[in-house]
Nucleic acid binder design. Structure first.
Lengths: 239, 239
DNA sequence: GCATATTTGTCCGTATGTATA
DNA sequence: CTATACATACGGACAAATATG
């Protein structure tokens, strides 16, 4: 019964997830299941390395294996699950190389979007302002995962300034994958605290229409963030 | 004990698949089916708007509905099929707005990669040289779809210079989707012919290490290509 | 607008193949 | 090597939605 690996058949988790399954009622069953699992994964409740068993999870959610496999497939293509042939699906553990890849993609995408902006009005920046306020509120309450969530939203909305759905989708996946790495570091405070101020500076540059400088700032910003995360990742690996 | 199980029905569909795609035995059935359909779609055999019936296609491919649906799911997440609830899956027809989005993403990604290159040797450029040769050969033979294929590969290998798997994946999907638009234009020659020379120019700049200038050239290159494709798309819509 | 036929969405039971203890 | 657990794939069934006349 007691196992070294965090297997999904923990009773309390299955019970709580069954509640989620009942609450939603729109779109297809597979997508609703995927929504439930996505939230559990990105919020760190299912840590990297967790194995998702078709049988026990399907029973807990009250859906058949076929439907559950549909949901698995959706999440696997978002990078939130990895699929190994004849072995099953797992919550992925990101390597250092993958972290570097994710950050390189972030820089290319986010800086590219910011640099190519031509005009800006306060209304379009409104979502970014809201995210910044949310981050500040969470920081004041000592809710560091909450700060991380708000920070991710800020960058999602930053990409959204391009008005390009495919870019939005890529950014959404990218940042969701990055959160997997956040959950394995020891101190989320050190990871997120300093970036609230930097986001504010970025927002001011955007409001002033200084897009080239904003892009340059963002580039160093992301390089710093990458270095910090890699350091945290290494100290955790040695521990 | 004796494992002389010569499953006849299994051999049948394995043979039919082997005709279509040199099937790799290390992947699942659904992925092999997806490979077959992906090629049919990107090569224009299944034009945009085509409806994919589960029953008839499953019978034709010799797989069950469940397995076929898995393949549909894979392709839907690549953008090569669209899924409408209770209606089925279709080969998508790209709108003008979607074409613009795809090109904006291309520019951000490809130009970003080229601009961030630091050093280059001839060996790493070898795939690009091969693609260029293939395009020239196809052009000489009047095989314009072949030129289009080689051109797509050239840009795929351009992104691959970053050595980033996630970028490779995005580029692959992006260019596959773009090919959907190529198939609905009247003259593939006008669409592809001029870009062979421009690719050669790009390659020379890369070989000389002039990455900033190469990125700028690529930006105007892609703007021109977008304008041509949009024009062709419009003339086709009115006809 | 209505009734019918077709197609998809979902679930189940089972047989087979694969990986792991 | 054997045994067990699990994923893979198939076919059938029924409900629900859509398309068709």
């Amino acid at each position: 019964m007691t196992e070294v690996v965090a297997v999904v058949s923990s009773d309390q988790w299955l019970a709580s997830i069954a509640q989620d399954a009942e609450s939603l009622d729109r779109s297809s069953t597979a997508e609703r299941i995927a929504d439930v699992l996505r939230r559990r994964i990105t919020e760190g409740e299912l840590p990297p390395g967790t194995r998702m068993s078709e049988a026990s999870l399907g029973a807990a959610l009250g859906v058949s294996r076929n439907t559950l496999r549909e949901a698995f497939r959706l999440l696997a293509h978002e990078g939130l699950l990895v699929h190994q042939l004849h072995r099953g699906v797992f919550v992925p553990e990101l390597s250092e190389a993958e972290l570097r890849d994710l950050y390189q993609l972030r820089r290319t995408l986010e800086c590219g979007v910011v640099r190519s902006l031509s005009a800006m009005d306060d209304e379009r920046l409104q979502p970014l302002v809201a995210d910044l306020d949310a981050a500040r509120a969470a920081a004041g309450a000592g809710d560091w995962p909450g700060v991380g969530t708000a920070n991710m939203r800020f960058h999602e909305h930053l990409v959204a300034l391009a008005g390009n759905r495919r870019m939005d989708e890529i950014a959404r996946r990218l940042l969701a994958e990055l959160r997997l790495a956040f959950h394995v570091v020891a101190s989320p405070r050190a990871l997120h605290e300093s970036y609230v101020a930097r986001n504010r500076g970025l927002l001011e540059l955007l409001r002033g229409g200084e897009f080239a400088r904003a892009a340059d700032d963002l580039d160093t910003y992301l390089h710093d963030s990458e270095a910090e995360l890699l350091t945290a990742h290494r100290t955790r690996s040695t521990a």
